[in-house]
Design a protein around this nucleic acid. Structure first.
Lengths: 338, 338
DNA sequence: ACTTTCTATGGAAACGTTATCTTATTCTCA
DNA sequence: TGAGAATAAGATAACGTTTCCATAGAAAGT
């Protein structure tokens, strides 16, 4: 069936050792032998068996990294993936895609699968590293290069690339405040994820700096997708004293907010100001074009790729945690409060 | 470092052979031995080495399939990927993700990489199989199971899962026609891709049945994303006699249309009816909720997964081409023309 | 009671590669 | 003109599995 190194050796009238030596450029091979072997390889279209290579030399790279992503419906991840793939492809590395949204145990199962397939590194996208798996992750990171996106584990030095979400949320709310809004509704995600806890922190900090007391009725916790945004906005709209501006914890939530608001006949930004978070590619394309906090998802993916390559090649990391400074991106969903 | 079957055998006080037998449920193993081995496996957290397994089972299976996707910004693909991953994961298979949008040669390069990594099958998402690579694909499909999503190669029997796009487009336009629209603008993608050629065919067929001559000024060719939709709609809007309804070749184009129309102060569906194509998850979440042709992207991915598993396991395929019947999904962007 | 068949087990060969040893020839330079 | 490098190449032992073969006691059929 398959052409083996044995066939090549026989055809080139030499030993498998010599062929192997040539393939790996280890040790001496004469010019004549090289010529014969090269020809045989070409003639037979010989491709070394990766399994056998991986078996003998456990350190031999499959040139593959695995990435765990909670949910492809969250458009932050396709954007990350694009950046990551761009970078890894340059180095000849491939990506194993794992979607973990089907519960806790899935995560461990995927990690086992990846480990069994000898990946060179494992990347965890935000929300994959839950509280209860922190210890496991630390342990894992000793076996194989591991990297977190938009998350970190307290008290460990696991590598990560993350946006300064506290700062980002702070910028968003401060911008709204600067436009004269004081009743700022915040539709956040579940507090057990680092990203949402941090946004909360930034939100509260910005209010505190402006001496505004956070009001519980202006805080909603919803699933971090369009439906969550829609639901949260509906609740705000039902309030006797609704907020004049809404900060959504993700662009997709903001898109849900847009629908909720426009459906009942209000306008954005005339009646409500709205700001999202992340700057997924879609944010610039919906109506009205979404003012948001640019978290540079593509760049994040790219940086993750660079970092993971350094880890694989055991190069020195100048920093084990890269913090991306998010930027306010003003489009068309906010306006000054009269 | 790694726990091997040898360690398990030693700890369970039995032979390698017996452990292997238990793992593969081949041959006899006594209740007592099973108990001891199970415990040892658990205690040691033993994971069989895929390399060694792959080496001996000359199938060389890495339990991996590669998928080539032109562009992660096209939200049809994340949806497909979700369905595909759901199905493959059940069988313990992983996905190599390749994004090919960086030009022609990329495709071949990726295929070589995948082949070198011993994938069990290769899946091509629409638009990866260009005219000029048809021969190459046919040749490839003899070496490794290959499957096309939403595309096919004329005169070959390469497996594929595709929506009946002619029928889908026909339904869309017929629906618009039924609402009384006769001036139907069509924003299509590039004709060198099968999907767009077929939509064109359905569009023309529906017009023909209703004895309407296709009018070139109502046909735009744009890039198949929001910006393309936006541009196309702008051009329609600039016409002295603009269409009353717009059929966008993808939901994302339709989202661009929404922005173009709403930005200049018109309403949907009051001033323009709009229908999209695919029913990406987002379609139900934008304002106004998009009437579209449901192409069942998740189900497509799932079916692709099932089919590819059958191909890998060399099971009989009841059909080499699965045709998905798209369905009109009425939401809120179309209304009757007065 | 004596062959079959079933149950249960372990030894050893094989898979395709690389690494370690060993051997043999040819240079190099005191 | 030797002694030690440098060059060249092969035999063989790993790597961790599965599969084939051999063995043997127990159950079952005659």
């Amino acid at each position: 069936m398959g052409i083996t190194i044995k066939d090549v050796a026989k055809r080139a009238d030499t030993s498998i050792t010599t062929v192997s030596r040539l393939m790996n450029k280890s040790g001496y091979v004469s010019k004549e032998a090289k010529k014969r072997i090269d020809k045989a390889i070409k003639d037979l279209d010989y491709k070394p068996n990766v399994m056998a290579q991986g078996l003998i030399n456990k350190s031999l790279s499959m040139k593959t990294v695995g990435i765990l992503i909670p949910d492809m419906q969250n458009l932050f991840y396709p954007a990350i993936l694009t950046g990551l793939e761009d970078e890894l492809e340059r180095h000849g590395y491939s990506i194993f895609l794992c979607i973990t949204n089907r519960g806790q145990d899935m995560e461990k199962k995927y990690i086992d699968t990846l480990l069994g397939k000898n990946v060179d590194a494992i990347i965890f996208a935000a929300a994959c590293a839950r509280e209860n798996s922190a210890d496991y992750l630390v342990e894992l990171s000793e076996k194989v290069p591991a990297l977190l996106i938009n998350d970190y584990i307290i008290g460990s030095d696991i590598c990560s690339v993350m946006a300064d979400e506290v700062g980002g949320a702070y910028k968003a709310v401060t911008y709204l405040l600067g436009l004269g809004h004081t009743k700022i509704g915040f539709i956040n995600g579940n507090a057990d994820r680092t990203t949402y806890r941090q946004k909360q922190e930034g939100y509260e900090k910005a209010l505190a700096v402006n001496e505004i007391k956070p009001n519980n009725k202006y805080l909603m916790r919803e699933t971090p997708n369009e439906q969550g945004g829609y639901k949260g906005a509906k609740k705000f709209l039902a309030l006797s004293d609704p907020p004049t501006a809404i900060f959504a914890a993700s662009d997709q939530m903001a898109i849900g907010v847009i629908r909720a608001v426009l459906e009942v006949g209000y306008s954005i930004p005339e009646d409500f100001s709205l700001i999202g978070f992340s700057n997924i590619p879609l944010a610039a394309e919906v109506y009205p074009q979404l003012t948001t906090i640019d978290q540079f998802p593509y760049k994040t993916g790219k940086l993750v790729g660079e970092m993971v390559m350094k880890m694989i090649n055991k190069e020195d990391l100048t920093q084990r945690r890269i913090l991306i400074e998010p930027k306010l991106l003003i489009r068309k969903t906010c306006r000054e409060l009269k």
